[in-house]
């Protein structure tokens, strides 16, 4: 099967199955598909840094969590009628997704510039450790900051709104998440084949050579890291709205690990890899999790199998080697 066909079938399944569940009046499955779309989006973000750029970030939970907390904090201020900042003028919170998303992405971008500038001077194990350290710092900060719930997390009483839609209805919220995933996938596919993507993928393979022809590695890597962080932050924002709850767990290294598992299960650097990986993950959780509470043991076996025997992940198994690059 060609990779295009695999991608299209997966996307068709993701769009059609929730509608089927909706008509059968099974909202649980709709929200399951929404989780797949959101986690896949987080994975698409990481895949840009990890799969295309070879930056093994073990701290993407930081951006996922920042997206979540920006959403939770803005919503809680708006719902409690407390201004976010008071002073010369009061800045209120908001429950509008269209305002929350760019803000969440912007905050994550600032964090990513900071983390990236410090961590991208290193590589290999040191890069992994520095990104992990930053995420853990934010994790412990969120636990010990009582204003926004500390360890207990922060509830969002009513899901944030989108003009013209009733976001509380599962299928409508699903369509929002799915559309954002589609748009992002389209954007990343363009980026992958652009001049920028060409340089980024070359950097993953041979940084010395790329520098020797006049492309500065740091600028390209930092930009990719920041774009990657903003995508994961958008997913974090949606995740907060899905659960109507944010907690420090979003920042924990388990979250970073899970996002990385989506990417590796699906196939490193493959455009639809994170969607395949997240689908498989959620399927395992839903099917095996109902049967045994040790379902992650089987997930571990699966991951082991992929790493040992199927380097191209699920997409690689179905469609073989990537065509170019």
């Amino acid at each position: 099967m060609s990779e295009k066909l695999v991608n299209r079938s997966m996307m068709a399944a993701l769009i059609l199955l929730p509608w089927l569940a909706h008509w059968l009046d099974e909202p649980y499955y709709v929200s399951l598909a929404t989780r797949v779309a959101i986690l896949a989006l987080a994975g698409v973000g990481l895949n840009l840094a990890l799969g295309l750029g070879g930056m093994i970030s073990f701290g993407h939970a930081a951006f996922f969590g920042l997206g979540g907390y920006v959403t939770g904090i803005l919503a809680s201020h708006a719902l409690n009628y407390e201004p976010l900042f008071s002073g010369f003028i009061d800045i209120p919170g908001t429950t509008q997704m269209l305002i929350i998303w760019p803000l969440a992405m912007f905050i994550a971008a600032i964090a990513a510039v900071f983390i990236g500038l410090l961590s991208l001077r290193t590589s290999g194990v040191y890069f992994i450790m520095i990104t992990l350290a930053f995420a853990q710092m934010i994790y412990y900060f969120s636990i010990s900051w009582p204003t926004y719930g500390g360890e207990d997390g922060l509830p969002i009483y009513i899901r944030n709104g989108f003009p013209g839609l009733n976001t509380l209805q599962p299928i409508q919220f699903f369509m929002i998440c799915c559309t954002l995933l589609l748009i992002t996938l389209w954007g990343v596919s363009r980026l992958k084949n652009s001049r920028f993507g060409n340089a980024l993928q070359a950097l993953r393979q041979n940084e010395t050579r790329v520098a020797a022809i006049g492309i500065s590695p740091l600028g390209i890597k930092l930009t990719a890291f920041v774009i990657s962080a903003t995508i994961t932050a958008l997913a974090g924002s949606l995740f907060a709205d899905l659960n109507r709850f944010v907690s420090p767990t979003m920042f924990s290294w388990h979250t970073s690990g899970e996002i990385m598992i989506f990417v590796i299960l699906g196939g490193l650097g493959r455009l639809y890899g994170p969607l395949a990986g997240a689908s498989l993950f959620i399927l395992c959780e839903a099917l095996l999790g109902g049967w045994t509470e040790y379902w992650q043991f089987f997930l571990g076996l699966l991951l082991l199998g992929v790493v040992l025997f199927a380097r191209g992940g699920l997409i690689g198994l179905l469609s073989g080697e990537p065509k170019n690059a």
Binding site: R190, L191, N193, S194, R195, F196, G197, N198, A199, A202, V210, I213, G214, I215, G219, I220, T223, N324, A325
Partner: peptide, 23 residues
């Protein structure tokens, strides 16, 4: 071809172009 293309790309302008396919 892609190896050489990367060099031509690097010489002939910025690598910060995100949407137009270089190939």
């Amino acid at each position: 071809l892609d190896n050489v293309l990367l060099v031509v790309q690097a010489r002939s302008g910025s690598s910060f172009s995100f949407f137009v396919a270089v190939r």
